[in-house]
Design a protein around this nucleic acid. Sequence first.
RNA 1: UGCGGGGUGGAGCAGUCUGGUAGCUCGCCGGGCUCAUAACCCGGAGGUCAUAGGUUCAAAUCCUGUCCCCGCGACCA
Length: 537
Amino acid sequence: MSSVARPERGIMSKGTYSFTTPIYYVNASPHLGTAYTTIAADTVARYQRMNDYDVAFVTGLDEHGQKVAEVAAKNGMTPLEWCDSMEPKFRDAWTELDITYTDFVRTTEPRHARTVQKFWTDLYDKGFLYKGAYEGWYCVHEETYYAEGDLEKNEEDVFVCPDCKRPVQQASGEENWFFKLSEFEDKLLTYFDENPDFIRPETRRNEIVSFVKGGLKDLSISRSTFDWGVPLPFDEGHVAYVWADALLAYITGIGYADPEREGEFEMRWPMQYHFVGKDIIRFHCVIWPAMLMAAGLPITHTVFGHGFLLTKGEKMSKSKGNVLLPADLIKVFGVDAYRYYFMSDVAFGHDGSISLERMVQVYNADLANTWGNLCSRVFNMTNKYFDGKVPQAPAGSSENPLKEISDELYAEYDACMSQVDFSGAAAAVQKLAGRVNLYVEESAPWNLAKSEETADELAAVIYNALEAIRIIALYMAPFMPSTSAEVYKRLSLGDIVAVADIEAATAWAGLPAGNAVETGDPLFPRLDVDAIDFGVE
RNA sequence: UGCGGGGUGGAGCAGUCUGGUAGCUCGCCGGGCUCAUAACCCGGAGGUCAUAGGUUCAAAUCCUGUCCCCGCGACCA
């Protein structure tokens, strides 16, 4: 099903690096939030590919469940027709944002049904499942059972769902399959204890630990009241319930039980990261590791629950009328600036307030004034003083402040990126860009150009500035792929996407003398906040 | 009610775990430079770190109380 080319395996040196976004629910179109998670994952994907890793980046769609069936019926479609109509919205959004996922899993695909059936049959065989009746109440909307004590009552004194406030129905003794989640309470707590990085950031970890300490109930993993789902092989009248289905898409995406991808799952599992919004960490930090433990599989290294994007301190929602759509922002800022803004200006893991005004600020300060203008002025001087060719750096010119910073940069940048501290990584690169601007100022090449006596000095300054620009382009590439590719092109360097070892590539003096340098149009023309039509608000 | 996050110069944040010159980006004011996208560089103004107590030689940072804001609860990471 997936049209995305998978990377060749086994040819890179550092090993595999695998991670996921959530398998998004088909009911809503992609919005800033889903785009945020996905851009973050893509930034990791692009970086780790440049960092000599064999990357697997799994995303996809959760297409099962009663709600989907209902929405489809309401729109006069079969459930699958409805899902088919939603899929392009996601794929197109990701294409527009330059997302380089390696697999896009739809939970309705046969290969995923195979995963679900194999996985749960295995747990069934191992004795982790039992059939039981759920006493109590059921909310169709949440697809969840509630004990009477957990319910709330509305004005009419009718029991309603504590989550969605809709009336609930009596469970009527429907039999479900249950997963013995309660057996994993201690094992999970021990695991959390021994693996402090499993849940990040730390506040999320504390939440989960206290939640598990509060006690775990067995988990209903099947439904027999509707059939829009994957049937369980040991009881065909039952389909896997939402999380018992969707979480497994992560392993479908790396070839679990896939005869066409022999050996890939073993190579890529366990993964480094699941990137999720903070609202769904429970499923990823409690149910999922318990499922894996039961299956005898290792557990993903880290579940990272990032924060929400807030506007004016409030969460975006349609009813508040403060929703921004990715496409609207791309129109104004372009894809690269869009990606850069969210990665650099919002601390990953914390809620972040965003605004159009702030986007314009960051765009102008970091991209137009610092990075874009730096390229502009240095390229222009290269053109003016060296006929548009990279000058030969004179002997001894490698002793300079830019090299000093650059030599330390990989370690700092890599540490940030490995910890998914995107804003830290971006700031580190930005610091070098700022230093180059200062270096140019201090060296004043326009004065050096006035006399033959300072010709060597001039060549050194321009070379060093160009070299720093090359290095900055490399480090910016995971955030802003198109711009970095453009800078590489203007320096007559090869395809930046082919860079497979960024540490080696960013070693000083990698820029060949004599390369043609094209000044080109400004990379990021300044924006005037008052002159922009955002088409929203 | 509950659970969670937060209140730091005009705006957005860092610093709080491991007490000891209050830092960053933007904006504002003044100066410099001229290669560049009114950009770049330097300097400056501006904060009783929500509030009231407590601990301490010393608290934004630790403890206690209070006030306020936000999130989960509605499509939604």
